[in-house]
Simulated assay, not measured.
Amino acid sequence: MTWSTREIADLAGTSLRSVRHYHQVGLLPEPDRRSNGYKQYGMRHLIRLLRIKRLVDLGFGLAQIAELGEGDEHPDEALRALDADLAGQIERLQQVRAEVAEMLAERVPTDLPPEFARVADRPLPEHERQFASVMGRLLSDDERVLYAELMSDDARTPTDDDFDALTDDADDASRQELARRMNEDVKVLRERFPGLSSLGGANPARYRRIVEQVSDEVFNAAQLDVLRRMKALRQGTVT
């Protein structure tokens, strides 16, 4: 009993294109041809094709299947490796599902990393949300946990609200006083969160450059002026 290419593809539950591709990459041996030039596939081709189809459906790549060879040996080691990979995928998918459920329930912004979204109990000002989104990309896993603590209501002060509400028409005295108060708050935060001073430690120069670029985009002129005044206070160039 022999089959045509179309017939063996149907029997194996695959496509003509796949059968031809398996021939091209050397996974499936070429069959003999009839006198009319048409291929005639036998049982060994069908069994081989069924094995390839099964392994592909399980998640094996064609290169992996080629490494297994054409023998009948049970691929214990390859299956164990696949099982471990699938277990990892399931764990990641479960984490993703948990995040999606949280995003649906809390309606948190989709650009915030999970650590930040979980503490965003209050509506974040647009500039704070944008800044936090970028920080989520700049910081390491441990640093994101720390930054999430800084975003929590417990770490906020009235000064933070004053900075959020600062407008460009704020006078010089108000800006300087706000810079002084914020500088004092930062001193307290650095005592409370020792790791604050080393954020972006994996690449400090890149971290500082991007923070400055983002600040220029998300803060208004008065807020940027207050940040410059704070830097001057820290450096002792302003009394």
Rank of each mutant, 00 (worst) to 15 (best):
Asp10Gly: 00
Asp10Met: 03
Leu11Ala: 12
Ala12Lys: 01
Ala12Met: 07
Thr14Gly: 00
Leu16Gly: 02
Leu16Phe: 09
Arg17Asn: 04
Arg17Gln: 12
Arg17Pro: 01
Ser18Met: 15
Val19Trp: 03
His23Lys: 10
Gln24Cys: 09
Gly26Val: 04
Gly26Gln: 04
Glu30Trp: 02
Ser35Thr: 12
Ser35Glu: 15
Asn36Ala: 12
Gly37Ser: 11
Gly37Tyr: 08
Gln40Arg: 12
Gln40Val: 03
Tyr41Gly: 01
Met43Asp: 12
Arg44His: 15
Arg44Ala: 11
His45Trp: 05
His45Arg: 08
His45Asp: 10
His45Lys: 07
His45Asn: 11
Leu46His: 01
Leu49Glu: 01
Leu49Phe: 04
Leu49His: 01
Leu50Thr: 10
Arg51Trp: 10
Arg51Glu: 09
Lys53Pro: 00
Lys53Gln: 15
Arg54Tyr: 05
Arg54Phe: 08
Leu55Gln: 07
Leu55Thr: 07
Asp57Pro: 02
Leu58Asn: 02
Leu58Met: 15
Gly59Asn: 04
Phe60Gln: 01
Phe60His: 02
Phe60Asp: 00
Gly61Glu: 10
Ala63Val: 05
Gln64Ile: 01
Ile65Met: 02
Ala66Tyr: 02
Glu67Leu: 06
Glu67Trp: 09
Gly69Ser: 10
Glu70Pro: 04
Glu70Gln: 12
Glu70Ser: 14
Gly71Ala: 10
Asp72Ser: 14
Glu73Phe: 03
His74Ile: 12
His74Gln: 09
Pro75Met: 07
Asp76Gln: 14
Glu77His: 13
Leu79Arg: 11
Leu79Asn: 10
Leu79Pro: 07
Ala81Ile: 11
Asp83Trp: 13
Asp83His: 13
Leu86Trp: 11
Ala87Asn: 13
Gly88Leu: 03
Gln89Lys: 15
Gln89His: 09
Ile90Asn: 01
Arg92Met: 12
Leu93Asp: 09
Gln95Cys: 01
Gln95Ser: 11
Arg97Gln: 14
Ala98Leu: 03
Glu99Ile: 02
Val100Gly: 00
Val100Leu: 13
Glu102Leu: 08
Met103Gly: 10
Met103Gln: 14
Leu104Ser: 07
Leu104Phe: 09
Leu104His: 12
Ala105Pro: 06
Arg107Asn: 13
Arg107Glu: 14
Val108Ser: 13
Thr110Gly: 06
Thr110Gln: 10
Asp111Trp: 05
Asp111Met: 08
Leu112Asp: 03
Pro113Ser: 02
Pro113Tyr: 04
Pro114Thr: 01
Phe116Leu: 00
Arg118Met: 01
Val119Thr: 00
Asp121His: 07
Pro123Cys: 02
Pro123Asn: 05
Pro123Gln: 03
Leu124Arg: 05
Pro125Arg: 09
Pro125His: 07
Pro125Gly: 11
Glu126Val: 14
His127Lys: 15
His127Glu: 14
His127Asp: 12
Glu128Arg: 15
Phe131Ser: 11
Ala132Leu: 09
Ala132Lys: 06
Ala132Ser: 15
Ser133Ile: 09
Val134Pro: 07
Val134Phe: 09
Val134Glu: 09
